[in-house]
Computed example of a mutant assay.
Amino acid sequence: MKPWILGLTGGIGSGKTAAANHFARLGIHVVDADQAARWVVEPGRPALQQIVEHFGPGVLHEGALNRAALRERIFLDPNERIWLERLLHPLIRAEVAAHLADAESPYAILVSPLLVESGQYRQVDRVLVVDVPEALQVERTVGRDLTSEEQVRAILKVQASREERLRHADDVLLNDHDLAWLQAEVERLHRFYLTLRGGRQ
């Protein structure tokens, strides 16, 4: 039987990666949309060629995509960002679908920080949001990425609001304790998910 798909999301510093890693340890097939976004622009893939034709060789560094240079270009001009999204989003969707199709576990997980914003939630059968109070998000991210509180708050502004994410959630994992608590919650959800057909009761 084809596995059903769980969409796993959460804001920056929420602990979604730690949650996804624990699901993977339990034998669940996990596909990361961020990794798929990197795969589609690898050297030799057609997307990289199109990006270079559009933006010029300045977005390359030693034959690979120079993300910082590209980011600068698309932040300066919103139309360029739209062009890039139109090129990449269908390719990322196809890449994700191909990797999910390889799943042999009872359900598979698509991890995406932008599950709600990108509309990827329409590709999944059920949505799990790893939720954390904003103050804790900021504290964890500043500690982890050695970045400033202002930068973290700027990232939070472009991500979907907590309310928006929670509105799309079928399940919420409140991650305001330690790692052992998070892992116990993942195991509890996993046992529940094994009882579902197509992501539903």
Rank of each mutant, 00 (worst) to 15 (best):
M1L: 08
K2T: 01
P3V: 07
W4N: 06
G7T: 02
G7H: 07
T9E: 05
I12S: 01
K16R: 08
A18M: 06
A24H: 10
A24M: 13
A24D: 08
I28W: 01
H29P: 05
V31A: 12
D32R: 09
A33N: 15
D34Q: 04
Q35V: 13
A36R: 15
A37F: 08
P43N: 13
G44D: 11
Q49T: 15
Q49Y: 10
Q49A: 14
I51V: 12
I51P: 05
I51W: 09
V52I: 09
V52R: 01
E53T: 07
G56N: 07
P57A: 12
P57N: 11
E62S: 14
G63Y: 10
L65F: 08
N66M: 03
A68P: 04
A68Y: 01
A69G: 03
L70Y: 01
L70S: 00
E72H: 07
E72W: 00
R73L: 10
I74G: 00
F75Q: 08
L76R: 10
D77W: 01
P78W: 03
N79K: 15
E80W: 04
I82C: 14
L84S: 10
R86F: 12
L88G: 02
H89R: 13
P90T: 03
R93W: 14
A97C: 06
A101C: 04
A103C: 02
S105M: 00
A108T: 08
P113H: 03
L115V: 03
V116C: 04
G119S: 12
Q123I: 02
R126C: 15
L128G: 00
V129M: 00
V130K: 04
V130A: 02
V132D: 12
V132L: 15
Q137H: 14
Q137Y: 10
E139L: 15
E139S: 14
E139G: 14
E139C: 13
V142K: 03
G143S: 14
G143W: 10
D145Y: 05
L146N: 15
T147Y: 11
S148T: 15
E149Q: 13
E149V: 13
E150N: 12
Q151E: 13
V152E: 05
V152H: 01
R153S: 11
A154P: 04
I155V: 13
I155N: 00
Q159N: 11
A160F: 08
S161C: 03
E163V: 09
E164Q: 07
D171M: 09
D171A: 12
V172N: 11
L173Q: 09
A180N: 11
A180Y: 08
L182Y: 04
Q183E: 14
Q183K: 10
A184M: 03
A184I: 00
E187S: 09
R188K: 02
L189N: 02
Y193G: 01
R197T: 07
G198Q: 11
G199K: 07
